[in-house]
């Protein structure tokens, strides 16, 4: 894709910029779709109909919502730190957006085919943490500060089980490159890492319980890192008003929203790439290829985005100590056992 683009436009710089813009366009389109989906799913769970007026079944409503957000007055509290207050949403969004660079959308399109792709995504997500802290502090609001501290503590805590779960998949696939990991899972649904990856049936059977655990831990930790229900404590409206984005409005608020939606897809895509075959078709060679690859990755990713939406409108919220308990006292020990067992099985 890179070479193709360079050949097409001639100038490498322009080609690189084009490559970088593709995920941005994807995020924007995806955010609109998810906004619509979230509202419709929520409405059907809650026995109501949601948007019906703008366009057919309200399909134009997300555009209206975005337009409304863009037009809104941009309020900066008088006591806020203007510079950091303005910069924070960008840090939060950029931290998520740069992660998309390493996601292999199909065998033919990877933003940056990094050897350490997954490690890179984990690393850049720490920019999000800094951005959240920035927003909470710059708002100069106690609730916002509490929200951002909670959020940072939550993301930092959940990075550990998620990194350990990632390690399980990485150990099996033998690569940190997400494209390589996806390639490794060739040959249908039962060669996916969640079912032990391609290999002899005995190894598969032995690995499956551990990989399944790792898969669920990664998914749960991912939801926690995206600050979604039941782990949406940072913006728990019943306690902290709106957490770190209490004071934000208009475009900046939209930025946080966009980052949250992008993060939802990012964690889903990571889970899909590591455990569910990435862009591989579940039917072996049937319906596979670069274009089908993009379809499969986005379809699988959207499925988990849907799962997150579904959970959000179904479950109550954890308390902050319970949240930490789940991470440190449940997931981390489980993951250590998994890593140990997977290591043993692989060596053996």
């Amino acid at each position: 894709m890179q070479e193709y683009l360079i050949g097409l436009v001639g100038e490498p710089l322009v080609a690189y910029v084009l490559m970088a813009v593709v995920p941005l366009v994807f995020i924007l389109v995806y955010a609109l779709v998810t906004l619509y989906m979230e509202m419709k799913v929520a409405a059907h769970i809650q026995d109501r109909v949601a948007y019906m007026r703008t366009g057919w079944h309200g399909v134009l409503q997300p555009f209206a919502d975005i337009l409304k957000l863009l037009q809104k007055e941009d309020i900066i509290p008088a006591q806020a730190d203007r510079l950091l207050f303005t910069a924070a949403p960008f840090f939060v969004f950029v931290g998520t957006y740069v992660g998309f660079a390493a996601i292999p959308f199909s065998s033919g399109y990877v933003g940056a085919d990094l050897n350490l792709g997954i490690l890179y995504i984990v690393a850049v997500s720490s920019i999000v943490v800094a951005g959240l802290l920035m927003s909470g502090w710059a708002s100069n609001n106690k609730w916002a500060l509490l929200g951002s501290l909670r959020s940072a503590a939550q993301i930092v805590s959940y990075e550990i089980p998620s990194a350990l779960a990632i390690l399980v998949a990485v150990m099996i696939a033998g690569s940190l490159n997400l494209n390589e990991v996806s390639k490794f899972q060739e040959g249908g649904i039962f060669n996916w890492v969640v079912f032990g990856g391609p290999g002899p049936v005995v190894t598969k059977l032995l690995l499956t319980p551990f990989t399944l655990t790792a898969f669920f831990v990664l998914l749960t930790a991912g939801i926690a890192e995206a600050n979604r229900t039941p782990f949406d404590l940072p913006e728990a409206e019943s306690e902290l008003v709106q957490g770190f984005n209490t004071e934000y409005s208009g475009m900046k608020f939209a930025m946080f929203y966009l980052a949250e939606y992008a993060n939802m897809f990012l964690v889903s895509a990571i889970t899909v790439c590591l455990f569910l075959g990435g862009w591989q078709s579940p039917f072996g060679s049937f319906m596979s290829g670069p274009y089908w690859g993009a379809f499969w990755l986005i379809a699988k990713g959207m499925f988990f985005v849907f799962v997150q939406v579904w959970m959000r409108w179904t479950l109550p919220r954890l308390r902050v100590d319970q949240l930490m308990h789940v991470s440190w006292k449940v997931m981390v020990p489980f993951m250590f056992v998994c890593i140990f067992a997977v290591g043993l099985i692989l060596v053996w």
Binding site: L119, A123, S126, V156
Partner: peptide, 8 residues
């Protein structure tokens, strides 16, 4: 690793 340890 610099990013992960120092920033994160």
């Amino acid at each position: 690793v610099q990013l992960l340890l120092y920033v994160g």
